[in-house]
Write a protein that binds this DNA or RNA. Structure first.
Lengths: 204, 204, 204, 204
DNA sequence: AATGAATGAGCATTCATTCAT
DNA sequence: TATGAATGAATGCTCATTCAT
């Protein structure tokens, strides 16, 4: 009798376990905070032994990094794909903003890790900033600057600063949503941010 | 012989020591991060014995709270005073924004504690949100709504959301400034935020 | 009422506690072996909290070093004092040998630590060798060489090697005594070693 | 097609693998120390999987035992063979001493394991003593006592003690040689030990 | 009020050993 | 036989907090 594993060669056990630990960590970090989470909690939540965690991650900190890295990669990839579907700069920014809040709004635990736990140390923030986060800002910025070239957005604005403003506004929406115990939908907030933002940067 | 203490009855030693510990904590938290800072480090930096810290604060966490509470109170008081000096809603928001970035830009260590260390736990963020921070957002919001009443800002915008947008944009300026190793002045960034923001919320 | 402490200013509490931990460690190391001894065992045996150990010693390893260093210092000091009491080279070596076995024979636990636990790692043996141990060998060697000068011992012998031979023979007596469950007295073995050794190195 | 294995029926693969693990362990123990050596290191050094080690040895400790047992057996066998080649008691002891230092001097790693790693625990030392080591001492002792019978060595000396003295002196030569980073040849030291020893035990 | 020695709970990580394949 | 992924017990050390002085 052939086992399930044999039937799914594309989904090796190894990935399953790493994945399970990562998911467990997101849950545990979101509920207890990174510093108050024990590796044993993560292992138990993932259904593996404590030591098994160290077969897939070098340290507790690396788990946090991995969560960030993987999610950021996915987000950026999804963002880039979205950008290819339209050439209108306003529409591009609109889609980025929506994607941003949709992703966070769809996974409360991941959102908590992103909006709260990842912010807790200058050290991490610096790496954080150096890594995918910078790329994300760049994505917004270049989209905006393309809009400036196209005459859609005001030419005198600094693309770098504009990107931070949009990001900051969206980021605050997400943080507030988490702290508010999410009594409302997050994704629709994107429209209100865009309304003001696009109006503010509009040429003419 | 009268001691220095006797000469300053309005500023009792008690306040001096509490103050010294608070200042020391800001320095220590900013440099090592909250979780990596030892109470002994704070005591040593403040020039007091470890145990003395506990005569003024109930716990390490209470020190962090106190830093936030005191700074927030001061900021709100300063903000309110500023608002009384003009009746133009746009000018009011302009002044709040400037004050926001000026205060943070003037004290790098305090800024690090506010932008990074205070964000590290849902628990703290929730209390944080519940406390002075909510009042700060309210200040922005009511100023904005007064502007709506006066026909200066678009009536269809939600004041609560608008306040978060402005705050989020300013907050991101501050966080980025810290992570960038502050190679530029923070306060002037307020103008760029305001340019877009006010343009975006303008009636007409 | 004056406390005992007040009555014994020469014996500060600090020394008492350090001393207690050191004594406890000798007992614990002797019974369980260095690697199998837990710091918690030492603390408990010394009647202090686990953390207290670290107020007096940097690490578990430093405790082992301290045991060796202190005992070696004492032994060498005692040896030097003994050597001053006679000028006969044969008698000097006789006294060193007796002192060597008397000290180890008087404190079984300390002997175990010296003969067994301290030997368990090249790393430690190297430091061990570099430190007081080398000085001890030098003491034997210079005594022997003085005897050569005096025409008492054979001139063609290498003092360095001779010192190792005497030390090695005594060391083996001590190790065997420990392993034999000490059914006999250790100190008298010195005479049998000396009988052969002195006969072997005698001039004429 | 016949495999290499089939061609060497006298030297089955089983022995090869056990041998490889043993050799690997000697190398690893000598370089890292017994307690700091991981079974995984030994396996990797031997070119087998971790689990394979447990097909040949019950535990890490048994590997250490096996190293000792096998080497001791070989040494004793070699020693006995040597003793048959001469009937002169002095010459017999001379050959044992030379063999002792030659064997250790020829294999630095094995010497480290014997002189340092095997000494690290009372428990092991006791078994060590009970096993082949006692037989080795007995070999020296009976050779010496035969010499006493033959009137070559002093009759009043205790053979047991004499054996320990010779062994202790040789053992110290070996230990010092290892710690000295072996800047000299070990085997020739046997002559200096014998010079003093034989002179010391000589009848007449 | 102030001290700082003492406390002891808490935890990330390692690694010998097992066992399903 | 051989593998190597998985296990989970084991522990040195830290540091917030207390309290006798």
């Amino acid at each position: 009798m052939r086992s399930a594993r044999t039937l799914n060669p594309e989904r090796p056990v190894v990935a399953d376990k790493r994945e399970a630990i990562l998911r467990a960590a997101i849950r545990v970090f979101a509920h207890n905070g990174y510093f108050n989470s024990k590796v044993a909690d993560i292992a138990s939540e993932a259904g593996v032994a404590d030591g098994t965690v160290y077969l897939y991650f070098k340290s507790k900190e690396e788990i946090l990094h991995s969560i960030f890295d993987r999610s950021m990669e996915e987000a950026i990839a999804a963002g880039k794909q979205l950008l290819e579907q339209t050439s209108d700069p306003r529409e591009k920014l609109r889609r980025i903003a929506h994607l941003h809040l949709e992703r966070l709004g769809a996974d409360r635990d991941l959102a908590v890790v992103f909006q709260v736990e990842l912010r807790g140390s200058t050290k991490f923030m610096e790496e954080f900033s150096a890594a995918g986060f910078a790329e994300y800002l760049k994505l917004i910025r270049s989209t905006f600057e393309a809009g400036q070239q196209a005459g859609v957005f005001r030419k005198e604005l600094n693309g770098k600063v504009v990107a931070k403003i949009l990001f900051g506004a969206l980021d605050e929406m997400a943080t507030n949503w988490i702290l508010s115990q999410r009594r409302y939908k997050l994704a629709p907030m994107a429209d209100q941010v865009l309304d003001i933002f696009l109006n503010g940067v509009n040429a003419e």
